[in-house]
């Protein structure tokens, strides 16, 4: 038993009161009980509205800062700190929560953005040296050790932790090249972090030897 929609000239299933194509009423008496699809209850992520509010508040705060800065000092010098701070807050806190990042993804993002932030800070405050020579290597060393511990805890199940490791090794390689090029006096923290990250990658390869070999075979025909 079906209803007929005169407007669209199609047969409509019995359970529908309105034509799904044009929306016209085909039978006002029908009980709206769909047999092919359930009565949906849309479950939305409860965190999403909070994140949206925080995002909007951040933009508002930033605009306010720029306005006050321009009004009082006629420059945007200190507003830039706020801009960078809010950007970091969005990239490292709000976005991972929104996108449900896993630990490896968070660590990769942290490594990259915090390194970029420290370099920016050094350049912006004209105090070149402390970040590249000490802060960045020690921070990344900490992340590297953390990634190693997490890999051990997961029993080397997959290559997830390779992402932050590779990121750290990559950043340290660039830092090493820069430090050697500029003849910097303190290279050892960068060298230690580089060696730790590289040895962790090698150890991961060793412990997942069979899988590593297959991966290499597939990619390089070794």
């Amino acid at each position: 038993m079906t209803h007929h929609c005169d407007s669209c000239n199609v047969e409509i299933e019995e359970s529908k009161t309105n034509c799904p194509l044009c929306g016209k009423c085909v039978s006002p008496d029908t009980i709206n009980q769909n047999t092919y699809f359930p009565n949906y209850t849309i479950t939305t992520d409860k965190r999403e509205p909070t994140i949206k509010v925080l995002e909007k508040l951040s933009i508002l705060a930033l605009l306010l800062c720029f306005a006050v800065d321009l009004f009082c000092t006629h420059t945007i010098t200190w507003s830039l700190y706020v801009l960078i701070g809010l950007f970091l807050d969005w990239v490292l806190i709000l976005r991972p929560i929104k996108k449900q990042f896993n630990f490896a993804q968070i660590l990769t993002q942290l490594s990259f953005y915090l390194t970029a932030f420290l370099i920016f800070l050094e350049l912006y405050t004209n105090t070149w040296g402390w970040g590249v020579m000490y802060a960045i290597p020690f921070m990344l060393l900490g992340f590297s050790v953390l990634a190693g511990i997490m890999t051990l805890a997961h029993g080397y199940v997959d290559f997830e932790m390779f992402k932050p490791m590779i990121m750290i090794a990559f950043l340290m390689t660039i830092a090493l090249i820069l430090l050697l090029c500029f003849n910097c006096s303190v290279v050892w923290p960068t060298l230690v972090t580089f060696l730790v990250s590289i040895s962790e990658i090698i150890l991961m390869f060793m412990f997942r030897f069979k899988r590593s070999i297959r991966s290499l075979k597939k990619n390089f025909g070794i």
Partner: peptide
């Protein structure tokens, strides 16, 4: 052609 419509809309 006779068309029979089912929908979740």
């Amino acid at each position: 052609l006779n068309v029979e419509i089912i929908s979740n809309v």
